[in-house]
Design a protein around this nucleic acid. Structure first.
Length: 470
RNA sequence: GGCGCCGUAGCCAAGUGGUAAGGCACGGGACUGCAAAUCCCUGAUCCCCGGUUCGAAUCCGGGCGGCGCCUCCA
């Protein structure tokens, strides 16, 4: 335990603040999850690695953590003016498959990528389609309190009934998006948003449900309020997501939740991760410059090298992804781990002089708004420059890795699986024999041969080993 | 047009008032038959101009440049 207090940047107040939980020693976190209509690219994974760090931070602090993440599998329109199509429906139509099938496929991929990136599973992983009743209930609650109105297209939230609407994102409602009101006839203000959309007559939707207002489907913003309500209550500590959600999605969540529950603030701390840039632009599906984790693995990178890459920059800053930077991260990660995995067999000793000082620096960096780059630098210092004994280093690496989540103490070679190939073994042996006879031209010929097919040889005092580098 | 962010060595990046973390690459050295791997050494005064201050990358003003949101996006 340590005296440091956790300091987090709160979007709601635009300041770094000391964290004060609603209930002592407990933290309730809600993370906006993926809309599973397409693959999640590596930029999409940033919010989950960030949320994972946040979760680990509170575990380190000795808090009990309850973490909820949603999966959006209905209602997220292609346009936030409430007039676009549902993304799931569009994807289903395009591929001729069932929306549910598509959702399952991309959910599975997302979960697999999370696992590969060592993101601990949330305590609750909830799908919007499994919580229609909660969404209907929340909409009814808002209706009974007079925050809604009905038009031909659906039930809408009336922002004029919620005076603080523009505060969170510091919106200038007179100037922004004035044209949007045209999108849906009957909307009173362009920023009013759909809580429940009616199914269009004559248009077959795969996803629609009965409700007090007739058949239809929930608006996208509603699910987060409804599901957090069910699992976290009417108020909770931290809500996370990408910066792109501040203006519309989170602003709407706040409006409907504070209106429905009569609380203020609904969420104490709002935390947002910045985007990943790729070739000078943000990586996004609409720009088409995406790259998924599988692509990195196929290029020969270790999946956790991408986590290492992520940890090299602060979550609140745009990070630039380049092939060169990714290769640098992969090299740095493998080198670090090659040293730390050797400590796994050591005793762990925290009593050595100098350990406590590093422990304190570690906590200070973690609790200062999750300063991962500094913690990563500290890990390198411990391993290479601290002058501490192996058992002291083992203690520190274990502690630091409990936050970084880089598997620093497990053997990399074992994890990757030792490849066997008798033909290559034979060539390596023939090269060894040639070297013994000082027939170096033959030895080098064999080495070049192997190099051409992506196999590199390493000579050690105990003989030669080989591995594929491609 | 409105709101917000950013500009630190070749690349990715910490640091937000006291004289620039870390990773990768490059170069030099050790090791090696030569390599590879490994280890050691090595580099920046912080976009420009002006101001505040004993002192600024760090605060203020003005430029230049890049990005994000305001339309789907983490």
């Amino acid at each position: 335990m340590t005296a440091h207090e956790v300091s987090l940047y709160n979007t709601r107040t635009r300041r770094k603040e000391a964290f004060v939980p609603i209930k002592p020693k407990e933290v309730k976190i809600y993370t906006c999850g993926p809309t599973v209509y397409s693959p999640q690219h590596i930029g999409n994974m940033r919010p989950y690695m960030f949320a994972d760090l946040l979760r680990r931070t509170f575990l380190l602090k000795g808090f009990s953590v309850f973490h909820v993440t949603n999966i959006t599998d209905v209602g997220h329109l292609t346009d936030d003016g409430d007039s676009g199509d549902d993304k799931m429906e569009v994807a289903a139509k395009k591929s001729g498959r069932k929306a549910e099938e598509i959702a399952d496929e991309y959910t599975a991929q997302w979960l697999e990528d999370r696992r590969l990136l060592n993101c601990v599973d949330p305590d609750v992983l909830c799908k919007a389609t499994d919580h229609i009743a909660e969404q209907v209930a929340l909409c009814q609650k808002l209706e009974s309190k007079g925050y809604t109105y009905r038009i031909s297209d659906g039930i809408y939230f009336d922002i004029s009934k919620f005076p603080g609407y523009a505060n969170f994102a510091k919106l200038d409602l007179l100037k922004e998006g004035e044209g949007r009101i045209k999108d849906v006839s009957g909307k009173r203000h362009y920023a009013d948003f759909a809580l429940w959309k009616f199914a269009e007559k004559g248009v077959a939707r795969q996803q629609e449900w009965d409700s007090p207002w007739g058949r239809g489907f929930p608006g996208w913003h509603l699910e987060c309020s409804a599901m957090s309500w069910r699992y976290l209550g009417e108020r909770f500590d931290i809500h996370t997501g990408g910066v792109d959600h501040i203006k519309i999605h989170h602003t709407n969540e706040i409006a409907q939740s504070e209106a429905a529950f009569g609380v203020n603030p609904w969420v104490s701390y709002w935390m947002h991760n910045e985007f990943l840039d790729f070739r000078g632009k943000k990586m996004s599906k609409s720009l088409g410059n995406i790259c998924v984790l599988r692509d990195l693995i196929d290029a020969g990178f270790h999946p956790l090298s991408y986590r290492y890459f992520f940890l090299q920059a602060h979550y609140r800053k745009q990070q630039t992804f380049t092939d060169e930077a990714m290769a640098a991260a992969d090299k740095g990660y493998r080198r670090l781990r090659a040293v730390t995995e050797g400590l796994a067999g050591c005793e762990s000793d925290s009593s050595e002089e100098g350990v406590e000082k590093i422990v304190q620096r570690f906590y200070a960096a973690v609790y200062d708004d999750l300063n991962a780059p500094q913690v990563l630098a500290l890990a390198g210092e411990v391993v290479r420059k601290s002058g501490l004994s192996d058992s002291a280093r083992r203690y520190l690496v274990e502690l630091i890795d409990s936050w970084l989540g880089l598997n620093l103490l497990s053997p990399l070679s074992q994890e990757l699986g030792k490849e066997s190939d008798p033909r290559i073994d034979d060539l390596v042996q023939r090269r060894e024999a040639a070297r013994q006879e000082k027939n170096f031209s033959e030895a080098d010929r064999i080495r070049d041969l192997l190099m051409d097919e992506g196999v590199t040889i390493e000579d050690t005092p105990d003989g030669s080993t080989w591995h594929r580098f491609k």
